[in-house]
Design a protein around this nucleic acid. Sequence first.
DNA 1: TTGAAAGCGCTAACAC
DNA 2: GTGTTAGCGCTTTCAA
Lengths: 353, 353
Amino acid sequence: MTRPPRRPLTLRDVSEAAGVSEMTVSRVLRDKGDVSAATRQRVRDAAKRLGYVPNRIAGSLAGGRVNLVAVVIPSLKNMVFPEVLSGISEALAGTGLQPVVGFTDYLPETEEQVLYEMLSWRPSGVIVAGLEHSPASRAMLTQSGIPVVEIMDTDGIPIDACVGISHRRAGREMAEAILAEGYRRIAFLGTKMPLDHRARKRLEGFAERLSEDGIAIADREFYSGGSALAKGREMTQRLLERSPDIDFIYYSNDMIGAGGLLWLLERGVDVPGRIGLAGFNGVELLDGLPRQLATMDACRREIGRRAAELIAARQPGTAIVTPERLDLSPTIAWGDTLRRSTRPAKQGDPAPA
Amino acid sequence: MTRPPRRPLTLRDVSEAAGVSEMTVSRVLRDKGDVSAATRQRVRDAAKRLGYVPNRIAGSLAGGRVNLVAVVIPSLKNMVFPEVLSGISEALAGTGLQPVVGFTDYLPETEEQVLYEMLSWRPSGVIVAGLEHSPASRAMLTQSGIPVVEIMDTDGIPIDACVGISHRRAGREMAEAILAEGYRRIAFLGTKMPLDHRARKRLEGFAERLSEDGIAIADREFYSGGSALAKGREMTQRLLERSPDIDFIYYSNDMIGAGGLLWLLERGVDVPGRIGLAGFNGVELLDGLPRQLATMDACRREIGRRAAELIAARQPGTAIVTPERLDLSPTIAWGDTLRRSTRPAKQGDPAPA
DNA sequence: TTGAAAGCGCTAACAC
DNA sequence: GTGTTAGCGCTTTCAA
């Protein structure tokens, strides 16, 4: 590794090569202002020949504009955020804006640091996961004066705007469906993440709805770390050893649900007759399991898309009025693991046994 | 969404509030140079009270240093890159450098654009997936004068440095193992990605080694899009309908391998007796399948870590000499789907049937 | 249509 | 230990 470091080219180099002022070069390269076709061509050629790459640091400082959108999310391990990012990239493509991603690992303190770093680049917008932030984070975001969109969750008060789903409602609705199908001995298996507020809210909504029917969660267990598929397997096994009379398991995510499903099928357990199962997220990854796990889509891609659109719509020059709260409404994907005796038959449903 | 945009605070604001020069504020905030404890405290308080966030655009322009490392990868859908990113973040933590990620979707033209965007921010290093780039991309990277580390692959000539594994060799070694176990009617199932050079090289190495034993790939099929698990299932089914005498299937990735495995197990096929299976990547995600798919680790996290370390080691002031080629050597994870008659028994292997 | 001057907010280098 | 000066490489503004 010994390449000689060169001085990076500047506008001046191109300007000299093309025989015009720096200003004219700048105009050509940004397609701004009127430049004669001949000059434009000469400049373009020179820039290309030299291999000039503009210096956006200088450009942004002078222009007071930065084409960056800060995206702050917990982690990529979650299976949730890659798709959110895709939605964001998709919607940002063509706007001239570019996403820059930072990770918090679900830690408020890390979030604070990452936001500080990001804001120090004076981005044109911030997309941040969740509505829960440290006071310092909130202050920074409010102070910044740039558009902020909080994503994933709508159960709370946004700093500026939010796009997501109500996880509390998602939990409630799943409870509702499970009860309607006649399940009564209901267990919950999830992640041990006190700081994953969305998982917490789902569980709260879930328990709340059950209790309205006088039912308590019969058993529960939380895990952390390791392969979710394997954990789902182990936890399901332990659960049924502990509480053999369980008739439904609500998993906090599809991966552990899939682990549980595989384990039950191997043992020849009747799913969803003897035990029903449901997860959360609607990950496409799992299409192809022996049976389709019941789940609820988290609207990941759409959340990303809408958030990016909100940011784009709030750029100076764009006078569109945007809503401050976008609450998406996912529906239950019944799959094959939630018995459907009472539900009216839909096209595509297998005939009742 | 109607927050009043404020003028962002500058060093001057803090300097006035603290009653010292801008320069002193700058020194305090960067922990550079000697400042008396008393002054330092006053400045810190003022900055905090005002909610000052430094402007790195100006700072970078003046200082000629940017704490950013550009990371250019194909996509996050691949299951491979999230872990590479983790490795990078991990190694960069504490160096003061920050990763900024861009996606190419496996398209050379997109890669070119993304590199251009990234380089325009004058990052302190570039980590880019693969050794194959358009001439323009190569030119940009060479011209840039900053450290460039190409990752994932070592079959080729790096622009500056590279860290990865030889996918050609990975394919060869898997072929070797399969042949050693006595399999002879060997099929390949993979992705239809002419631009995924690493998958291509694995297949080439694989076919090459087979042909040295006078064996040709008996059947093959390629897919694109959709859920990999489902595709693995479908392709495996079609394959066995077409070529029922196949005794081994080499999958280009673990997810389709898992789909195939699940399908075969459901049908009661003897794996690995009647048919052996192997995938590629070593994704932890799949721990928890009924049987463990044979695979080969792609060393994702380590590649990320090492690449980041190379970048860090090449920063001005760090006079460490770094290698220009780091070739990691993954070994086969035999799992439960590659018969092991002739291989000497190792600890942990089940007793032969 | 083109050019010249001023300055974006910060830091390096040098004074005191 | 602290302050002053002179840019970093661009874009804005205004003049020609």
